[in-house]
């Protein structure tokens, strides 16, 4: 029996702040929790693990909505508890993924490799170095804290894989993942229906007649694209966003719950509410003018990110 624990974000890894977009690259785990073409990388990983694992848990610290305080139990403690419960349920092996990167490892092959070697742990490596993914033997390993220890690396077998991996350490990595998905350089597929070659549209999206969508492009759930808009060159507009009249979105990602105002030219950027990262000029700024950019009126900030994590928690409780 194989169990899996996904750690959505780990404060013990010097993760700073709670606004991923204000300081791109400084918060490793956050990009993995952001919706990319309809589903966050963490959720995609959990879905993939359900196919090969008997038990899957996603562990995340949810911040208090009012004061930003974290829940009492720390992530390592929660992970240790989960690990112990897997042990009690009789798991032969436990996969631990500290989710910062997007990766497409063949878990079944890695498990076979781990069982063949018979070591206490196996760590996955890709071309550019190690991933935070281990398969451990719960009869030998004490818990999640073991993989955080310096000795873990020395005592783990190295499983080398040629699989696609994107470390999602920066906004640029995030955009690369979107483009890799569009151009089939990885197995990441947009959600929704492919209404024309290279154009994916999700349920509840409203695209006005005079708006133009040029492939490849992704329009998420309940997105509104107003008249005379142009969405082009590998752009993805994520759920509950609104692109208003005459705006052109080129080679950009609009993250969930974002309103983009009238007659704008958005290129080579990632926008999340008022926050904008322009990859061409390498600048991150906050637009204070609500007629230009803002969080969409319907829902508050961070809802999607939280929903994804919560859906992961629900998965954990359903086991």
């Amino acid at each position: 029996m194989l169990g899996a624990i996904i750690i959505a974000s780990d404060q013990s890894r010097q993760v700073q702040g709670d606004r991923f977009i204000a300081s791109p690259g400084s918060e490793l785990a956050s990009w993995a929790a952001v919706e990319v073409m309809g589903k966050a990388s963490i959720t995609r990983l959990a879905d993939a693990l359900w196919e090969v694992c008997d038990l899957v848990s996603v562990i995340a610290t949810l911040r208090d909505r009012r004061n930003g305080a974290q829940s009492e139990s720390s992530l390592p403690d929660l992970a240790d508890e989960c690990f112990a419960s897997y042990k009690r349920k009789g798991c032969d092996a436990v996969l631990i993924a500290r989710c910062g990167a997007y990766f497409e490892l063949d878990i079944a092959t890695m498990l076979a490799f781990h069982q063949e070697r018979g070591l206490e742990a196996t760590r996955a490596f890709v071309d550019d170095g190690p991933l935070d993914v281990w398969i451990v033997d719960p009869s030998v390993v004490s818990g999640y804290s073991w993989v955080c220890s310096p000795s873990a690396c020395a005592r783990s077998a190295v499983y080398r894989s040629q699989a696609y991996a994107n470390r999602l350490q920066s906004a640029r990595d995030f955009r690369r993942l979107v483009l890799d998905g569009f151009h089939s350089r990885c197995h990441l597929r947009p959600e929704g229906a492919e209404i024309k070659p290279g154009i994916w549209v999700c349920e509840g999206a409203l695209i006005e007649r005079s708006a133009r969508i040029v492939a490849p492009a992704f329009i998420g759930r309940n997105v509104q694209i107003s008249d005379e808009c142009l969405i082009t060159r590998g752009s993805n507009v994520e759920s509950d966003s609104h692109i208003h009249f005459g705006t052109a979105v080129e080679n950009s990602s609009i993250l969930p719950n974002t309103y983009v105002g009238i007659g704008l030219d958005l290129a080579h950027s990632i926008v999340d509410g008022r926050n904008l990262i322009n990859l061409q000029h390498n600048v991150s700024l906050q637009i204070t003018d609500p007629v230009v950019l803002r969080e969409s009126a319907a829902r508050g900030r961070g809802r999607k990110l939280r929903t994804d994590i919560e859906s992961g928690m629900a998965m954990s409780s359903a086991e």
């Binding site: 007659g263 704008l264 030219d265 958005l266 904008l276 322009n278 000029h281 390498n282 600048v283 637009i287």
Partner: peptide, 12 residues
């Protein structure tokens, strides 16, 4: 400044 450049481009 890069910020000014981005804003002017954004607003066409």
């Amino acid at each position: 400044s890069p910020e000014a450049e981005v804003i002017l481009e954004l607003m066409r």
